[in-house]
Nucleic acid binder design. Structure first.
Length: 485
DNA sequence: TTTTGAGTTGTTCGA
DNA sequence: GTCGAACAACTCAAA
């Protein structure tokens, strides 16, 4: 007697280890692993181009991993509810399991699907597979969501370690007849004409095995120096786990426990481990914010910015996007993003500050660009981070904090190696001039083969002036508020 | 209820 | 060259 199968609906949890929904599906006996490409998904944030590339690689890897344990991935395209109905009909499944998503569009979709399925007698299990803590499961003493990070982190950290990660199954029973599957290639998630993904392929191995390798690399070579070196884009002292966390090739509980056990074995690394766990805490906090303020990606979290005089300067925006602002650390970051689908965190702040404060362009414009170009594009993290830099967000930077791209470059890329890597036309400039080529003596420029305005742009704005302009605009905002009151 | 201390990531200026 | 203060005020979280 065959038991009816359970559909495991993969979404942003494309892995086999530490997968509570998979464990739940397995308790039913037979499992149909399903991924649905739903390009009509509600919410207004269709997956960006770089993330689609990442998705392709992650799905290929997941299918491969499933085949090693006797199963395979079923790919279907269409509205999620309709596709689920189809697959339920085809397989006779009596249950569906998934890991929760927290984007407002996904919540609405899943709620409707869950109600419809249960009304028809299909069991639904939705579980937490992607967060250390459910956003509704942590609150201030007054029972409200946290609007400041530090107390949020203290509360989360104070809970001790999250549950230990679950092992990956060694075998996955399949139904007698597996439903048909689309061919991944037919989904055209990869760019063609032109194929701009060469830099992404060189930089990344999507999928669960790639995530494990990145984690090991970080534990062996990044963790010990993390507290000091995470700000150094030339050294790459970060974990580079963000794209894997984004589609769930690895989960935060796995990362947490791996870091903790490494720190336990090397007592000197306790401080570094805490610094890193705190960054996981920021990811959690972004989800906390998005859940409780679902319009975080669209609207200023902090009131009073509705009438801020953002500039519409298309040519400046384009210079920023293309890495042609004339500020080497900004341009290096924007080109790293374009080429590899990722940017070092410190440089993200510098580049974001430049767009918002130096160019006075709306943070949503930057949010959109990052959404399209980042392989780790994450609605919660992206929105929370842009709002933080803009000063419109929770716990935001004070308005007078304006990054100076020259000082930041000197401080965090002291030899200029990061700039040299991504702005090769400046590669021969010596370190003491590489972050402000426009002040380099003529003979230094000549020897380095740089003619400003020809090989590399002059600065599109004067930072000192732009800073004053920003300070005045943000200050006027406060006054306008007072006048309105 | 009121009070109090605190709040990711910076820069500039003047002593 | 180094160092502390100013840059604003506000709101949050907890006692």
């Amino acid at each position: 007697m065959h038991r009816p199968p359970c559909i495991l609906w993969f979404r942003q949890d494309l892995r086999l280890a530490d997968h509570p929904a998979l464990a739940a599906a397995l308790r039913h006996g037979v499992v149909v692993p399903l991924f649905i490409l739903d390009e009509t998904a509600p919410g207004g944030w269709p997956q960006g181009a770089a993330k689609r590339w990442w998705l392709h690689g992650s799905l290929a890897a997941l299918d491969h991993a499933l085949r090693t344990i006797g199963s395979r991935l079923v790919l279907r395209r269409g509205p999620a509810a309709a596709v689920l109905d189809e697959v339920i009909r085809e397989t006779g499944a009596t249950a569906v399991a998934w890991s929760r998503c927290y984007e407002p569009g996904a919540i609405a979709r899943d709620k409707a699907i869950k109600a419809a399925l249960r009304a028809r007698g299909v069991a639904v299990e939705s579980v937490n597979g992607s967060l250390l803590v459910e956003p509704w499961d942590i609150a201030t003493g007054a029972g409200k969501p946290y609007a400041v990070f530090t107390p949020f982190w203290k509360a989360l950290r104070g809970r001790g370690d999250p549950p230990a990660p679950l092992p990956a199954p060694t075998t996955l029973p399949v139904p007698a007849a597996m439903p048909k599957s689309d061919a991944l290639e037919d989904w055209r998630l990869l760019p063609t004409a032109p194929d701009w993904a060469g830099g992404l392929r060189a930089a990344w191995v999507p999928g669960e095995a790639g995530a494990r390798a990145a984690l090991m690399e970080f534990l062996d070579h990044g963790l010990a120096g993390y507290a000091q070196q995470r700000d150094r884009p030339d050294i790459d002292g970060t974990s580079r786990l963000s794209p894997y966390l984004g589609l769930g090739a690895i989960g935060p509980r796995q990362v947490w426990h791996a870091v903790q056990s490494r720190a336990a074995a090397h007592p000197g690394q306790g401080g570094a481990a805490e610094a890193y766990l705190r960054e996981l805490g920021w990811r959690e906090y972004a989800y906390h914010l998005l859940y409780h303020w679902p319009d975080l990606p669209e609207r200023n979290w902090r009131d009073g910015f509705e009438h801020f005089p953002w500039r519409a300067d298309y040519s400046a925006l384009q210079a920023w996007q293309r890495g042609m602002t004339g500020y080497p650390i900004v341009d290096a970051g924007m080109r790293q993003l374009w080429q590899t689908g990722w940017m070092h965190n410190r440089v993200r702040m510098i580049a974001a500050s430049f767009l918002i404060k130096d160019l006075l362009i709306h943070w949503r414009t930057g949010e959109d660009w990052f959404w399209d170009t980042l392989v780790d594009a994450d609605l919660a993290v992206n929105a929370a981070s842009w709002q933080w830099v803009a000063g419109t967000g929770a716990d935001a930077a004070p308005y007078f904090r304006v990054f100076n791209p020259v000082l930041q470059g000197r401080k965090f890329d002291p030899h200029g190696d990061y700039v040299r890597r991504f702005v090769p036309e400046l590669a021969r400039l010596p370190a003491d001039h590489i972050h402000e080529p426009w002040t380099a003596p003529a003979d230094v420029l000549r020897q380095a083969g740089v003619a400003l305005g020809r090989d590399y742009p002059r600065p599109i704005v004067d930072h000192a002036q732009a800073r004053l302009r920003a300070l005045a605009a943000f200050k006027a905002l406060g006054k306008a508020d007072e006048a309105a009151d």
